[in-house]
Every structure is written in structure tokens, then in C-alpha cells.
Design a protein around this nucleic acid. Structure first.
Length: 220
DNA sequence: GCGACAG
DNA sequence: ATCTTGTCGC
């Protein structure tokens, strides 16, 4: 079973949330990657009409066949407003609860959002990876930072820069379609993260892990 | 004052 | 995130 480390209290104010990010950022490891990735978890959150109701969905896929081998859904009420840069304080609590309900421990977490591509280098993927101590990566649909357009063919990429640092890549997962934005979360390198995203993306723009979690959250 | 702003 | 029209491609 996935253990969630008790590294911080859940904040009420933005200042408290920022302080937690600053304190935990040095604990993130950006080296290494899983020795072998047999299973990958997709994490996604669905927002309902009240905008206060949120549904966290996690699906574990066999990386070879891309079939779903485990899943969990948690309905909750958001306890933190949406603030760019403080995303995790809104989405992480139900996602962690869903992760704890899994019976299969995935080799890597594929998060819907950024990892190191974050103003304080502590995006959702870093936060979830650190609290579970699992390898994690972020795959965002919208960039946080600046990039040049990668070449048209699938697999092409360009660096994603933020505050003068290279924090991730704009990666073309499908020829002629706008790229996704990949950055390391915890215990994972950037290049291995991009390799994994391409393996999880044989057909569409977004990884099958994310697509499966999105579908599950929409139903449940 | 103006633009930027993960989901 | 969600809303919404038009266009392209399989």
C-alpha cells in the first residue's frame, strides 16, 4: 500500500502554502528514474458544477499493453481556492486519498500539471512524488514558462525555460499537434520522463494514463 | 497602469 | 476547469 508522508499541515492561507513549498523544495530529487517501468499511474481531477465539488481519479496502466489494471476514485470538496502556483493544495488531498486506495503500487506517477516547471520549482508532480516517495513526472497542457515551437514530427522537443532555467521540455507527442509540457516531479530525470511520455502516447496528444483517469473521473 | 496566470 | 463556433482529418 502507498504510504503518504506527513511532511506538512494543509494550509489555509496562500502565505502558508508558499512557505510549505519553499521548505519542501530542497527535498525533491531530480536524479534517477525507475529501473523498470511496468505500470504507470494517471492522475486527474474533475471539477463539478459547484466548482467546490471535485473528483480525483487515479488509473494504473500496464505500460506494455496500456490496459487499466487498477483504479480508484475519491469525491471531495475543495478546501483551497484555485491559485496558479498553489495548485497542489487544491488537488493533492483527494489524489493522495485515491492513491491510498490502490491495491497495485505503480512504478511512476504521471500527473496532470507541472513538476519542476513551477515558479518555486515545486509543482503538483513534485509535491505528490515527495509525499508518496514515488517517482513522478508532470505533463501539462499549458506551459508555465517560455519555449520555441518544436519541429512538426512526433518526438520533437525544445527546452522549456522559466526564470532563466531549463525546467522541462515542450514535447510533440503527435505530428502537427501542439506539444505537451513535460517536467520532472521526484526521483526522475527529464529525458527519461520524455521517453516515458512518448511510450504512453501512441495515438493522441495526451498520455493514455491521463486519458484513462479523465474518463474515470467524468463518470464517477 | 498592464499583462500573466498549471487545473 | 468550463463555455462555444467553425474547420480539418480519419
Amino acid at each position: 500500500m502507498i504510504e503518504v508522508r506527513d511532511l506538512h499541515d494543509w494550509p489555509t492561507t496562500e502565505a502558508e502554502a508558499v512557505a510549505i513549498q519553499e521548505r519542501l523544495r530542497p527535498l525533491v530529487r531530480t536524479d534517477g528514474e525507475p529501473a523498470e517501468v511496468r505500470t504507470a499511474a494517471g492522475l486527474d481531477v474533475d471539477y463539478r458544477e459547484s466548482s467546490d465539488e471535485i473528483v480525483a481519479a487515479v488509473t494504473v496502466l500496464d505500460v506494455e499493453t496500456l490496459s487499466v489494471v487498477d483504479s480508484a476514485v475519491v469525491r471531495d470538496r475543495a478546501r483551497f481556492p484555485y491559485v496558479s502556483g498553489l495548485f497542489a493544495f487544491r488537488e493533492a488531498p483527494p489524489l493522495l486519498a485515491a492513491l491510498q486506495r490502490l491495491s497495485v503500487e505503480p512504478d511512476v506517477l504521471v500527473c496532470d500539471g507541472q513538476g519542476l516547471a513551477h515558479p518555486r520549482r515545486f509543482g503538483l508532480a513534485c509535491h505528490l512524488g515527495l509525499l508518496t516517495d514515488l517517482p513522478s513526472i508532470g505533463v501539462g497542457k499549458t506551459p508555465l514558462g517560455h519555449f520555441d515551437q518544436p519541429a512538426e514530427p512526433r518526438g520533437s522537443w525544445t527546452p522549456l525555460h522559466l526564470n532563466g532555467e531549463e525546467v522541462g521540455r515542450a514535447l510533440r507527442t503527435r505530428t502537427g499537434v501542439k506539444p505537451v509540457f513535460v517536467s520532472p516531479g521526484h526521483r526522475h530525470t527529464l529525458s527519461a520522463a520524455c521517453d516515458l511520455v512518448l511510450r504512453l502516447t501512441p495515438t493522441y496528444r495526451l498520455p493514455e494514463t491521463t486519458r484513462a483517469a479523465d474518463r474515470l473521473g467524468r463518470e464517477g
